[in-house]
């Protein structure tokens, strides 16, 4: 049984420094902290915003299940996942993963695992808003995202 993950689904932005402090304040056993921030890009000027829809209740439940798997598989002292929803503009944050461990490898691998699973298993959907045409297409899932899960299956 690993650490208890911090899971949040929210419209508002997150503060990287605050989230790192949450996992490291007052601790002397943490030797490595890895953060991954997923951001909205403008796709060469084409994109005005992404609108993120989510399934309230299941989003938190699924993120917790994924995080618990990571906490069982790697020796982590702390783990945080924050996923935003609503309209997010280029340059703004979408998702945050923070992993803390006594050693680098566990923190790096766990963060990589979490992002692979969040992309294909957490119930979020992105719709594009275009600079010249308003609401556009739903972003299509990529086969490579699904294939990425294979490498974690033992």
């Amino acid at each position: 049984m690993g650490c208890e993950p911090h899971i949040r689904v929210q419209a508002e932005d997150f503060d990287l420094a605050v989230e790192i402090d949450r996992l490291t304040d007052g601790r002397r056993d943490v030797g490595a902290v890895v953060t991954f921030t997923g951001k909205c890009r403008d796709e060469g000027g084409r994109l005005a915003a992404l609108e993120l829809e989510h399934y309230p209740g299941m989003a938190e439940a699924e993120m917790t299940r994924i995080a618990r798997q990571a906490a069982e598989r790697w020796q982590l002292s702390g783990l945080t996942v924050v996923h935003r929803y609503g309209k997010i503009r280029p340059g703004e944050n979408i998702v945050l993963v923070v992993t803390a461990s006594s050693h680098r490898k566990a923190a790096l691998e766990a963060a990589d695992f979490l992002m692979d699973y969040l992309k294909s298993r957490a119930p979020f959907w992105k719709k594009e808003h275009l600079t010249d045409a308003g609401p556009g297409q739903w972003v299509e899932a990529k086969a490579e995202d699904e294939n990425a899960l294979e490498r974690w299956k033992k």
Binding site: G38, L52, H54, Y55, G57, M58, A61, E62, H83, I94, V95, M115, L118, K119, S120, R121, A122, P123, F124, W125, K126, W138, V139, E140, A141, E146
Partner: peptide, 26 residues
């Protein structure tokens, strides 16, 4: 009821069944 299920899964007598496209979060 908030958990992924495949198409062969038996439906519960009552509860919440969600249908959606492949997810694109992260």
């Amino acid at each position: 009821d908030h958990e992924h299920a495949d198409h062969q899964t038996r439906l519960p007598l009552d509860g919440e069944v969600a249908l959606f496209p492949p997810m694109t979060g992260g």
